[in-house]
């Protein structure tokens, strides 16, 4: 994989196809936790971390257990036709369980290893399990497996996309929280106060992010 390719994957998911503003993934935390900048930053950090870990783990599982190709470990152990070991229809169940277990493990590890980080991110970790952005990045990573020449290239692409998606999510959260803090002092018409005006602001942000479309 060349440097340009990595660059394109990263910036594509960071700005052009921003997870929140162009792909509509992870909207619940985007509107729920973006009232204050501090909270938004903590949530963003937690999402970057979990997305990276989820990309790593699901890439391994997909390559070695689910795909029906010569890299499948069941095929290597038992032989026969590699396509017979194709279990890709189990994506949804396997990925959501892996992510749920992963988040639980990360929470327990953080509690033991680094109490300050746990105090900052702890309450957001359970919320992340049902965050569609995490499962979304794992499912979107599957497309890389078709074109990848080998496991390491596939893994690298997954990790770059996971990192880019997480950072893109954090950028959108930070921008949104900054705007919402100022919205508190603006005389918005009564029915539009709170969530409705936030949606319209997000729409204008999405319009601005569409300008990145011609960047690559």
């Amino acid at each position: 994989m060349s440097g340009t390719e990595a660059f394109i994957i990263f910036f594509n998911v960071l700005l052009i196809n921003n997870f929140v503003l162009a792909k509509f993934l992870g909207l619940c935390p985007f509107f729920g936790v973006s009232k204050r900048t501090g909270d938004a930053l903590s949530m963003g950090a937690a999402v970057v971390f979990v997305m990276f870990m989820a990309s790593l783990v699901t890439a391994f599982i997909n390559w070695f257990f689910l795909l029906g190709h010569p890299g499948n470990l069941f095929y290597r152990a038992m032989g026969g036709d590699p396509a017979a070991y194709d279990m890709t229809f189990l994506y949804t169940i396997v990925y959501i369980l892996v992510i749920a277990v992963l988040v639980q493990l990360v929470e327990m590890a953080l509690m033991k290893l680094s109490p300050p980080i746990y105090r900052a991110l702890g309450i957001y970790l359970p919320l992340i399990t049902t965050n569609c952005a995490i499962l979304g990045v794992a499912l979107l990573n599957n497309d890389f497996a078709v074109e990848a020449s080998g496991f390491w290239v596939y893994l690298a692409k997954c990790l770059i996309q996971g990192l880019g998606a997480g950072i893109g999510f954090t950028i959108a959260m930070l921008l949104m929280s900054g705007i919402r803090e100022r919205l508190e002092y603006i005389p918005v018409p009564k029915p539009f106060r709170g969530i409705p005006i936030s949606f319209i602001v997000a729409g204008i942000m999405a319009l601005a992010f569409m300008g990145f479309a011609s960047m690559i």
Binding site: F192, I200, L207
Partner: peptide, 10 residues
């Protein structure tokens, strides 16, 4: 994408 946010907001 922008229209989706604006329409739901309205």
């Amino acid at each position: 994408a922008p229209g989706a946010f604006v329409a739901l907001g309205s």
